[in-house]
Design a protein around this nucleic acid. Sequence first.
RNA 1: CGGAGUGUAGCGCAGUCUGGUAGCGCACCUGGUUUGGGACCAGGGGGUCGAAGGUUCGAGUCCUUUCACUCCGACCA
Length: 509
Amino acid sequence: MRFSRLLVPTTKETPNDATLASHIYLIRGGFIQSVGGSGLYNFLPLGKKVLDKVRAVVKEELDKAGCQEVSLSFVTPSSLWEESGRYEKYGKELLRFKDRKNNEFVLGPTHEEMMVNLVRQTVKSYKQLPLNLYQINLKFRDEIRPRFGLMRGREFLMKDGYSFHTSSEDMKREFDLMEKTYKKIFTRLGLEFRVVEADSGAIGGSGSKEFMVLADSGEDTIVVCEGCDYGANIEAAVAKPKSCDTDTEIKVVTMKALYDEGKTKYIGYMLPADIELQDVKACNAVGANDLVECEEQETVSMMVIDETLKSLQSGNELGAQEVYYADISSVSEGDSCAVCGGILRYTKGIEAGHIFQLGTQYSEPLGCTFLDENGKAQPMVMGTYGIGVSRLLAAIIEQNHDDKGCIWTKESAPFDLHIIISNIKDEAQLALGETLYEAMQKKGVDVLLDDRKDRFGAKMKDYELVGVPHAVVIGKKLSDGLVEFITRDGLIKEEISFNEILTLLTERF
RNA sequence: CGGAGUGUAGCGCAGUCUGGUAGCGCACCUGGUUUGGGACCAGGGGGUCGAAGGUUCGAGUCCUUUCACUCCGACCA
């Protein structure tokens, strides 16, 4: 591609709403364009190229693991969501609308219902299982507060996969396979990441793991062990229980739990005074949709006692109708690892992937069953696996940038090689540039030739902003027989004889 | 949903207090000079001032209503 023909609106100025490096450089580098704010973006040619490259890596690894790609209708009849019970539960993030015949639809924020519907209509026998289907398609979530560019847009590209099994053992085998596959994907994309234990959130299910790209700007706090590879989202992290005895000081935190149809309950949470209540664990412990803070209550309808106090507290003296024990304590930095006893630390991560063991949570209400060897109908056991593909672009830049711009990794870069002709009026420079450009193209290297009339400085700034891994600069020193080979990561410049540059490029690419 | 703020050219902003025919930088177009770190000179195009209503001889500016967006918090791939 010739730069002079490429639509890359790079800018000097940073957009005023951008605070994150990935947001700033994706806009400034002309990869994406904001659509009237509010978390919607157009992908310009460069952004689309990167998106396609990332998508290709995801697809390749999934296909190798035996998954099959499909594409589901983005617009989904509301009736499917009513069947699963999520039409009520999902809340305002779900964009609902009507067509001209007044039929109700939703714009898919995730596609469990749609995929289960597809499978229940086509799969009837245990002989057809297991099955792992996925798509890489648009999702829409009407986020309360979209921000950070591609990190949290309302419309985004997501890979969502769903597997169907005859038993939970087989589902767990697939779950492990997906963990391995995801690790390969993130490794190929050149990301530093950590697989952590996670809370299952609104999608539901039991075991779940998140793939966290490590970056200081990440929105999630994760707990990692210094001694072993234990890692967990702070919402799900567990530490080695601290020993408690009758002298341990106790506190009770009162919260209001919100349930379907506007029902509320007051819950008392009892835990050691020096440990903070972990909200997500606390919410899960009582099966509520949400917890809100409230005034202290004289009586509560339910008392949840932290497991560390199990042998010491009965809870009866507090007058609660029901008493449960659960892990509701949060993990602090410096706590001991439950696995190896090492020291736990906090770090920040970007949630780029999430895999769940779903079980029969969707297959049962939606009647997705198969006939087993005895001809008996059984609900399929499911797993679900997601990757935020457009978010990955942001994650790659968060992890790979400097104060000049993007530094794309090999498998994500919009081009393999960037050739800069310093002054196109210099015939020798122009001729060498064209020669290299043609030779590389013939070889199948995706090369960008900066043949614009601009001055050297402007071209160099654009190169640094766009962030292709390698560049050749053909400039002033050509009169001494030299060109420059640049590695974007670190901006390392090597002077090469113009006779040898073609050989070097041929070897490297 | 709570708190704060902003809507004026493609982008970034001034002008609003004190009403009087729309301005700056970047970008864009034309011509010329320039070519190793976002060039310079000269000329040029581009706006129902977020929307609706009101006050006034006259509204970007004052009043009322409304919409949108941004930032800070509680939720999420």
